[in-house]
């Protein structure tokens, strides 16, 4: 398969058999994606709600426990995600203009950001915490006499639960972006227009929004 990076080799106006025209197809996809994002909001809603309930209950402990996280690392990750969100928006912009090279570059940058996010999270947060025994479960160790071990463990459960769920979404995003980039690069017939990019973009922006709320709640507020 010859790969040309200069122009989008797309068939014009491919409409699936259940649709009447392109506009209907596009709008249907956008609504479907948003309906799915509603479910995603509710997914994370549970994690946020648990956090709010327990923080309400154990406010002073939670304030103390937030010191366990470094706002600098969280801040860098926030900025990385904002950048990646921007580059996805840009990718959609270029795909709409059928500029293949730029689209691929933007998507590649996004993927790089997502990867960086995960690497930073692993290297500077998860692994050190794991080594200290600061993870929920049988191996949990705790040596701060001012905070009961069980509440620390509860807090770590929330932290790992929420950021883990978010990290899983990032991971899924990386996989999907890679597949999309490959398909765009080889002019796969399934990529008939910019909609796949836009759909994936919507997903990625949502992942970004989750982090926008997660960051101040876990890293910043109690200072």
């Amino acid at each position: 398969m010859a790969i040309s990076l200069n122009k989008m080799n797309q068939p014009q106006d491919v409409v699936y058999e259940q649709f009447e025209d392109l506009a209907q197809q596009q709008e249907t996809y956008v609504i479907g994606m948003w309906a799915f994002l509603v479910t995603e909001v509710m997914f994370f809603g549970v994690m946020f709600m648990s956090y709010v309930v327990y923080r309400w209950k154990y406010q002073p402990y939670f304030y103390a426990l937030h010191q366990e996280l470094d706002w600098r690392i969280g801040g860098i990750n926030t900025f990385i995600l904002l950048l990646s969100s921007f580059s996805v928006a840009l990718a959609v912009h270029f795909h709409q203009k059928k500029k293949k090279m730029q689209t691929l570059a933007c998507l590649g940058f996004t993927n790089l950001c997502a990867l960086a996010f995960l690497v930073i999270k692993m290297l500077f947060e998860y692994i050190p915490k794991w080594n200290h025994g600061h993870y929920p479960g049988p191996g949990f160790t705790w040596d701060n006499p001012n905070i009961p071990g069980n509440i620390a463990q509860l807090w770590y459960s929330l932290y790992f639960g929420t950021t883990g769920l978010h990290g899983l979404h990032v991971l899924i995003g990386i996989i999907l972006f890679s597949v999309l980039m490959f398909m765009i690069a080889v002019d796969h017939p399934a990529i008939t227009d910019y909609l796949p990019t836009e759909m994936l973009g919507l997903y990625w922006h949502f992942v970004d929004i989750v982090w926008i709320f997660l960051y101040p709640l876990y890293y910043l507020m109690p200072k």
Binding site: K57, P136, G137, Q153, L154, S157
Partner: peptide
């Protein structure tokens, strides 16, 4: 994994599960 959001042993509220 023995994480505990609802576990009363960790200070969690089992009734929160019922809410959710």
């Amino acid at each position: 994994a023995k994480i505990g959001i609802f576990s009363p042993e960790l200070g969690g509220d089992p009734v929160l599960f019922q809410h959710m």
